[in-house]
């Protein structure tokens, strides 16, 4: 069998079962027969949507780290914090390790994933050849997926709020609302990218 013959097949990344690649209508999903992993899920105007949402994510993240996130007041004393202030709490010795984790999972990795998507898709959208190292960047962004924890951070915020509400009055800063929107935008961005279609496009435009 030649590579062209093999390109008619797709092996499920989760369970290795072979399938024949069939054209999938935008908006539909092709799943593995055996383990139901999504294999191909093209979207209409997928690239425009993905790029737009990735840019939105970047802007929202810049806003979310610039403004106050939460503030607390009790008996005339007040304390407000930004997301960066929360990272800065881990300021000495081994604590810096925990600070680095929080900074990566809440700020850096969601941003890196958005920028990686723009880097991969924008040249393709403009009909150019893929950017240097685009494949590696796209692969890395896929690997990072479980490490970007925007939704988990918002749930953590809710728990902290419930915990602190008994202690003092807590109010929301603009960064809180920006981050809530960001969680939703990131979810839509991730759902708008079909890995299989993107890999095919990356290869076609590299060969062209």
């Amino acid at each position: 069998m030649t590579d062209t013959d093999l390109d008619r097949l797709i092996a499920c990344p989760t369970c290795d079962l072979l399938h024949e690649v069939a054209p999938v209508e935008p908006g539909y999903k092709a799943r593995c027969r055996r383990c139901h992993t999504v294999l191909i899920a093209p979207r209409r105007q997928s690239m425009d949507v993905a790029i737009a949402l990735a840019v939105t994510t970047t802007v929202l993240m810049i806003g979310a780290v610039s403004f106050p996130f939460l503030s607390m007041s009790q008996s005339g004393l007040q304390k407000s914090t930004s997301i960066l202030g929360m990272v800065a709490i881990f300021d000495h010795g081994l604590m810096i390790v925990a600070g680095a984790f929080v900074a990566m999972m809440v700020i850096a990795l969601p941003l890196v994933r958005a920028l990686a998507l723009i880097y991969t898709l924008l040249p393709l959208r403009l009909g150019r050849k893929p950017a240097p190292g685009a494949k590696r960047v796209f692969l890395f962004a896929q690997w990072l997926l479980p490490w970007a924890m925007t939704e988990i951070f918002i749930v953590g915020t809710m728990v902290a709020l419930v915990k602190l509400m008994g202690l003092a009055s807590v109010s929301f800063g603009p960064a809180f609302w920006l981050y809530c929107i960001l969680v939703v935008v990131v979810a839509f961005k991730d759902a708008s990218v079909c890995k299989w279609s993107t890999w095919k496009l990356l290869n076609q435009s590299a060969a062209a």
Binding site: S75, K79, M86, F101, V102, V106, G156, L164
Partner: peptide, 26 residues
């Protein structure tokens, strides 16, 4: 990955509860 929730709760709590002599959490 949802286990990480607790670390975020700790970070936010410590960042907010800094009311000088009255109460502070690290």
């Amino acid at each position: 990955r949802w286990s990480m929730v607790d670390v975020f709760v700790v970070a936010l709590t410590a960042a907010l509860v800094q009311l000088g002599f009255v109460i502070s959490i690290v």
